[in-house]
Nucleic acid binder design. Sequence first.
DNA 1: TTTGAAATTGAAAATCAATTTCATTTTAAG
DNA 2: CTTAAAATGAAATTGATTTTCAATTTCAAA
Lengths: 149, 149
Amino acid sequence: MESSRFKTRMSEEGLKSTRQRAEILEIFLNSAGHQNLGQIYARVAKTDPKIGYTTVYRTLKLLTRLGFAAQRKFADGETRYEPIPEGAHHDHLICLRCGKIIEFEDDHLESLQNRIARRHGFDIFHHRMELYGYCRQCARKKSSIRRKG
Amino acid sequence: MESSRFKTRMSEEGLKSTRQRAEILEIFLNSAGHQNLGQIYARVAKTDPKIGYTTVYRTLKLLTRLGFAAQRKFADGETRYEPIPEGAHHDHLICLRCGKIIEFEDDHLESLQNRIARRHGFDIFHHRMELYGYCRQCARKKSSIRRKG
DNA sequence: TTTGAAATTGAAAATCAATTTCATTTTAAG
DNA sequence: CTTAAAATGAAATTGATTTTCAATTTCAAA
């Protein structure tokens, strides 16, 4: 379970386990990925209105530092958090109409990146790749109320 | 010349040509790409201290809307502007040590993106791709004072 | 060339998310 | 238990971006 890994990691860092941190992790992991702080706070507050926004902010920052969460900023400028999945690195497809965010993995992309980096003498640590457009459903409807991006 | 294209476009939009706008475009085009507002304003102010920060801000926004500039936000969160180059779309390699930003084009990348998008039923309008690591010079030195990213 | 409505400018103020402060409370090691 | 260190939460601060507004400038029409 993630919550015990979280406790272990906190202990290792000389940090303390608190009810608030446990609740925030719990809620964060059990809700859809790619939410902003306000959304996460709203969920937390619904469960426990005593927990402050600041604590949610600090806990998400901590989760990010300890590798349980990743902070994402897509082209709309909002800061979102997603639980870090077990598997490999992934990138994102983002629908400009409905806001849907889809994660994908692609080995060819990874190797192509390495080839490009080598060509320019770079030693790559990480990357960011986002594809913006219309998802299948939104491409069908041809209305054009765009969001984000 | 870009400045006359700029005038034409402004006229088309019912906007007015001003000394300030002309100077800002001039300075923007004649300095290195990928600068933030503060840096651009500093250059403008050196040429003409009467021009206000707000005007530089608004003009860069206008240049972006009219397609003369592109706004970029890399992983360090800073907002930068680059002149929009004639040629094809390009992506970025960013050095985490010295901050160097290199533009690159790669057709394979473009076609791979389309393949990925198709696989997920997306219709792609634009994308963002950034590779973060050490440039050749910084990879040689092995010091580790990281910046951005 | 003059006129005047509309647009622009620039300083200051407002906004807004992100972050810090600080008094109080809680945790957990000894 | 004790108690030092850490965490909490409300409020304040920061810093970048954006808006406001009175004064100025542009430019199309007369």
